[in-house]
């Protein structure tokens, strides 16, 4: 389908998308888009590409911080639980060992720390990524099926202040994209 048809018929546009064959081309295009003043964009790749997120302006990765907090909470929960169980809730003498048998509590404290930290790693990553997400406009592009297989995409979103549909499409064509399409919202 031709570009004009799409533009006239679509009520809303998510952005403009360019398709590339290699991660290097995608990286170069992202750099150019950034230099051209675009800020609201996203790059899509079938595998992690070193430096790609930084190129499109991503700065702080908060996953590690969340995991640290999760781990501390887990350790405190585990040790607190055991102390409370053996000293407060159900104090009784086992083989003459003290009520507060802290050397015996090290293993469980360690396990709860790891458990909480690991669950935090998965769920904080998913939450910050906004997953699960059953619908996203980029999937409206038929070629985007290959974003998880062997193709690399750059999508400049229509919410970007510099986004002008014709200019942006032309800009993407100039980056040497193999294919440029409009992403319906």
């Amino acid at each position: 389908m031709s570009q004009e048809l799409v533009l006239s018929e679509l009520p809303a546009i998510h952005g403009a998308m360019a398709e590339f064959d290699t991660p290097e081309e995608l990286l170069a295009a992202c750099e150019r888009a950034r230099a051209a003043g675009y800020r609201r964009m996203d790059a899509y790749a079938p595998m992690p590409v070193a430096g790609l997120a930084e190129t499109i302006g991503y700065k702080r990765n908060k996953v590690a911080f969340c995991v640290l907090i999760g781990g501390i909470c887990g350790a405190m929960f585990g040790f607190g639980l055991l102390e409370w169980m053996t000293v407060v809730a159900y104090p009784h003498n086992v083989g003459g060992r003290p009520l507060n048998s802290w050397p015996a509590y090290i293993p469980i404290t360690f396990e709860t720390m790891i458990l909480f930290a690991s669950l935090t790693a998965l769920f904080s990553m998913l939450a910050m990524n906004g997953l699960p997400k059953p619908y996203h406009p980029v999937f409206n592009v038929p070629a985007f099926d290959r974003a998880s297989i062997d193709k690399f995409f750059l999508c400049i979103e229509s919410s970007d202040p510099n986004f002008r549909i014709e200019d942006t499409l032309q800009f993407l064509r100039d980056t040497g994209a193999r294919e440029v399409t409009v992403v319906p919202a």
Binding site: G95, R97, P103, A104, I106, P107
Partner: peptide, 11 residues
């Protein structure tokens, strides 16, 4: 730590 954890409860 494992040497301690093994020795301590065995007493």
């Amino acid at each position: 730590a494992s040497q301690l954890i093994i020795t301590w409860p065995a007493n």
